[in-house]
Design a protein around this nucleic acid. Structure first.
Lengths: 125, 125
DNA sequence: CCGCATCCGCAAGGATACTG
DNA sequence: CAGTATCCTTGCGGATGCGG
């Protein structure tokens, strides 16, 4: 049993670490984790802050993150209903890396945009 | 001119840093960068190492990474044709973060799988 | 009224065949 | 060998409906 538990090669899609990479390499997951950086948030807040996410994908992403033990989902049985999402300890350890990505994006934004302009100009010439 | 150049809020999809996050938060991009960690590779090598990637997505991902200045594409005009891909300096700076993700995945694999089992068992009960 | 499950139209992605 | 072109399938986004 556990026969799909191969060696930790992230390039083998049957390997667990590849599964994990697939999740955290998901655009919405990254953005959700980033949004939860400064404490717990309601579903609606997440939907509002993360521009362009559909309800379906947000729910789906949150379920996946919850399943992986990265966020907790707390339902308050009240009127109006309220559902809070918060990073777990595991989630916060991931946040360190993910906010590194955010920082990288901000830092190297100019370089990337310069490269894009260069690349795009090439084909038109 | 440059009217979509808003403040560096990665949650605003019109913002440059969000665009960058969207690319590096892409599963195939992550895997390609990881594969190129130990030097330049040919197209076929990439296709072979990255399990489950289709030609279309590999080509598309490589084009995107090339456009963003993360990889270089070198065509050798020979028979048989040969195309090498290699990380740029920019790409290597990104690799540091991405290999951090890989390490995280490996380290916390057990926790994630435990969480999944717990979560899955919950709904069946 | 908020969170989320469902249905449908469409675009992104996978598999295959073919070209330089 | 490295791609492009062509299907066809999958899965997303948007709207709707409903339960708590």
């Amino acid at each position: 049993m556990e026969s799909d538990q191969v060696k930790p090669d992230p390039f083998n899609r049957n390997c667990g670490s590849r599964q994990v990479i697939d999740r955290i390499g998901d655009r919405w997951s990254v953005l959700v984790v980033l949004t939860l950086a400064d404490g717990q948030k309601r579903y609606g807040e997440l939907a509002q802050r993360i521009d362009g996410v559909s309800q379906k994908m947000l729910t789906q992403t949150l379920r996946g993150l919850e399943r992986d033990g990265i966020v907790t989902r707390t339902v308050h049985a009240s009127v109006p209903p309220r559902v809070d999402y918060e990073l777990t300890d595991l989630g916060r350890s991931l946040l360190d890396l993910v906010s590194g990505l955010e920082a990288w994006a901000t830092t190297h934004l100019t370089e990337v945009e310069a490269a894009r302009t260069r690349y795009d100009g090439r084909s038109e010439r």
